[in-house]
Design a protein around this nucleic acid. Structure first.
Lengths: 197, 197
DNA sequence: ATCAATTTAGCACGGCCGTGCTAAATTGGA
DNA sequence: TCCAATTTAGCACGGCCGTGCTAAATTGAT
């Protein structure tokens, strides 16, 4: 009894990555248990042994992506200059590498699929919450003494700016990443100096 | 000969609006010639008489939405204060009303569908171009004397901020629209005063 | 009233979908 | 070696899909 004590979790992650690949290459409309199984190189039955239903597959994939991003960010070592540190973190939210690029693409796709898979809205809300908290942390990182009533708008502005730049970088690949980083650095510096006002 | 000299264009717009409704209510995954025809209250054959193929329906719907937004914006009367005027325009890009809210939702959905309907990327690029030009116009509106090398980053920042706020308003409905408008006004005022620096 | 063009409606085909279900292959302890 | 549990594979069903195609209904000029 007990064959392969098995790496179910590893299998799950393989399948989630296969789903991401399908989204990036063929769009969210091409996501099906069949296409994902084929992309992962397994039979449909095998996929359904791990994810009995399509919705579970999609929700897990979304959650795993959020988890990956969180881990990637918490793994960033502290830098001497707070602005450098904050910028280094914010950089992870921009689609600058193939990985983060795919991440944003998949996020938007799942966002659009939410009406069809209601469980996705919960994941989306948790993602939003994590982002909001993160932006607030970045503000207190560069301007620890900023009173809350001034920190909140600063966090909102930083978040909007970062998200907007992310969209721009994704939509028009000719937009220079350096410009995006420069705008972010300027914003962070300005927030850091806002203490005096 | 010649029955109903007919309002083909009106019919097209009806069908496009039906498609938007389907996207908003059931997600882009639910968009099919059948579902759209049913939403519009016509037979599939009738829809296919006007849009022979699914792709044509989707592309037309996307183009019509861009066209509508452009018209809505060019119809805005001039205001005395440049900042007020620019803010009034930027406001049209935020999902503050059911219409603009649906507009953004549909835009994102079509964005996600682009890999499946290659012709959509052209529409997306034109939309991006129009937005870029619009943001630049807003900057020159509030700061006419700003040299180009300073106007470009200002336009990028304004665009990113607006797009980011739009995403935020769409994703978390509890985010106060007043905060978004306040941030935009502050940004516009800052740009207007940047001339002196 | 007639008629030809246009519009509307609908059928039918092959294809992909999700999923319930059963059979085969694989595995490590006995 | 053998076996029972687990994993993998696959079939089959009903459903929705896009689209080619033909038939019916509708129209305005004659």
């Amino acid at each position: 009894m007990v064959p392969r004590l098995i790496d179910r979790d590893a299998r799950k992650e393989e399948l989630a990555q296969a789903l991401w690949t399908v989204i990036v290459q063929r769009g969210v409309g091409a996501v099906s248990v069949r296409s994902v199984a084929a992309q992962a190189g397994v039979a449909v039955g095998s996929l359904r042994h791990v994810f009995p239903t399509r919705a579970e597959l999609i929700v897990f994939s979304a959650e795993l992506m959020l988890h990956r991003a969180e881990q990637r960010i918490t793994a960033i070592p502290a830098l001497a200059d707070p602005v450098d540190h904050a910028l280094r973190i914010a950089r992870e939210l921009l689609p600058l590498t193939p990985d983060t690029r795919a991440e944003l693409q998949v996020n938007l796709a799942l966002f659009a699929e939410a009406p069809a898979v209601p469980a996705l809205t919960a994941v989306r809300d948790r993602t939003q919450g994590a982002l909001t908290a993160l932006y607030m942390r970045l503000v207190t990182l560069v301007a620890p003494d900023l009173p809350p009533e001034a920190a909140q708008p600063a966090a909102d502005r930083l978040g909007a700016l970062t998200d907007g730049l992310a969209m721009r970088l994704l939509a028009s690949p000719d937009f220079p990443p350096a410009d995006a980083l420069s705008l972010l650095r300027e914003e962070l510096t300005r927030t850091a100096n806002a203490k005096a006002t």
